[in-house]
Design a protein around this nucleic acid. Sequence first.
RNA 1: GGGGGUGUAGCUCAGUGGUAGAGCAACGGCCUUUUAAGCCGUGGGUCCUGGGUUCGAGCCCCAGCACCCUCACCA
Length: 556
Amino acid sequence: MTEQERLKEQRIKRRDALRELGVDPYGGRFADITATETLRERATSLDIEPGGRSEVKARVAGRIMLQRVMGKLAFLTVHDSLGKLQLGLSKADLGDDQWKILKQLELGDTIGVEGVLGRTKTAELTLWCNKLTVLSKAVIAPPEKWHGLTDVDLRYRRRYVDLFTNPDVRSVFRMRSAIIHAVRDYLVNESYYEVETPVLQPIYGGAAARPFTTHHNTLDMDLFLRISPELYLKRLLVGGMERVFEISRNFRNEGISTKHNPEFTMVELYEAYADYNVMMERVEGMVSAGFGAATKDFIPARAAAIEKECARLTEEDRPDDAKTFAEENHLDAYQEAAKGVTAGRLTTVYHGAVIDFTPPWTRSKYADLLREHAGVEMNDIDAVRKKADQLGIDHKGKDDAVVVNAVFEESVEHHLVQPTFVYDYPAPICPLTRRHPEDDAIALRFEAFISGMELGNAYTELNDPAIQKENFECKLQGEGDETMAVMDEDFITALEYGMPPAGGLGVGIDRLVMLLTDSPSIRDVILFPLQRPAKKDNPHNPDHQELSDVKLGKDA
RNA sequence: GGGGGUGUAGCUCAGUGGUAGAGCAACGGCCUUUUAAGCCGUGGGUCCUGGGUUCGAGCCCCAGCACCCUCACCA
């Protein structure tokens, strides 16, 4: 028996011991509970003396995360959704029967208690309990109490453990929820309808990416998981739904990185009678809403938390550690951002840099940025190709516009740290975008960049069916085998019925959450990022097969 | 796919070619005001996997697997 199995055995014995005491180790409804955060607020007005108890009764439920037992008195620290609270349990208060139950409890168990609020000698807020209910017995021990779960692989594979041991992780996902709600509220307030369009699509389009393929058995039909909802949402514009948005899970069969997950969330919206300038305001509006819902409070709290830890280290006579901690956690940046927030600005920290989201964001022409950072004129293709050579970009046999954009990505994007709208892209790489009225080589498209990362992409939408058809038929060299230019006859038919002029926009929700929560990787803001299954859990893994065969052989 | 890194007890991590280590958790004991509780004692290992070098490998070499970082594709 391994150590792991032995530890589990011990816990199972305690679970069974609870049953022998007539206690259901998996509990049931536990009503009328108060959140520990609420109790903490209430206690501030109670003015309880150290060592004293109030008359205030409360019921609390949570997971035991710390435990200090001294003979006939125990202190347990339980965590609930937002906070934590110390519970005081004595044999005298509980009585012999309940004390026996307490003796079977350990770290990781979830309990409900009833008691009165008080403070210990050291003034720690404590719920002195007279009743104890077991709500869920943990038969696997939680991770080490000080460091929590830090193994990145395990954190993603067992996100549930990550969540209950690391409050900061819970906080990021609460912020994610708040940001999505704020984005939705903003759009609904602007008279947008929220819609849902197909995830399973017979023709994929709306972006340049390789799709996942699947099959419907009854119709005997191959289908693609959507890479974008764009072409369906535009059909709704034809249908007279003038302002629509979808919070869309998209699937792209591409590489995985700190900025890419094969399934990701995008908010995509279309507004009739608008153009890409209106879409810039929509980006500012959505980001401002998300900032207000999450980051506004996060920044000063984080600054204060870093300061507190530095003060603690300094007090422990470890000034060097305090200095290192401050640097690693970008204390200066957080303090500056917190000042900005106090002054009413939308300032945050990302990768150690202070980012200011306060609208209006900088608006820069694609061609101007190319001139500034690459030193070439966009329409001087010889100069652009020469620059590509300098940058080590392989551009042989590739279309001019593709090379221009490769040079742009290589030489410009990483300079765009503060929120910037880059507008007026080379037309050939924008098949779904309306052309500039005065220059056919330019498309009315912008991308929003922050911290060198593309956050969103928007167009004044192309609504001329003839040009759209041409664009579908024209294939650029150098864009890879799969491009967004996959012919969709029905979409052309829709445009032929007449689509109003419109602005359209997609904003990457995961990346927005990364920026608003200072998360370095997209996996930090996706609850269950895609991972290869652990070997022992994966029935398709050849090694697993071998193991099974060996086992069968033994048994036979 | 290329390059770099990591993989040792349930968790967090040390480990110098020669008997496998610490802290936390667990188990036994003491303990009614603890704050990562403390004190005394005990148990716990496929050192990622498979080869190789060596008298001897956690450590050196080769191959593989998983994860992280990075580059490429992509948003």
